[in-house]
Amino acid sequence: MSSLIGLILMGIGLLFDLFGCIGLVRLPDVYNRLQAATKCVTLGTCFLLSGVMVSEGVSALSVKALVCMIFILIISPTAAHAIARGAHLSGVKLWEGSVCDKYAEDREGKK
């Protein structure tokens, strides 16, 4: 029973992973790609690790999977934040269909 629940959780996680990577390929600029890829792949891998935890039961492996899950939940948004800031500072423009860019306006104002 628990292995069935684990397999279902793993399947959901893998589907989210796949959709995140499709978003990485399809979306038009760096910031949108970051949005899709970070959210979907983070939650997908967390589902995958929790599926591993459920089907393994209480053991050293599942404790390590829990630690890995916490690490991923902390590091993935931080890395996305760093890349977005770096991309904007290095002068990558937003997609031409974008509505507004308050950050660039404020940076222009400071100069």
């Binding site: 499709i22 600029d29 899709a36 959210k39 269909g97 860019d101 950050y103």
Partner: peptide, 19 residues
């Protein structure tokens, strides 16, 4: 939400940076 926006053939996105 993101899966819907990615799989929709027209990609209904309306991006921008707000404060």
């Amino acid at each position: 939400d993101v899966v819907y926006r990615v799989l929709h053939p027209k990609m209904p996105i309306n991006p921008g940076i707000v404060k």
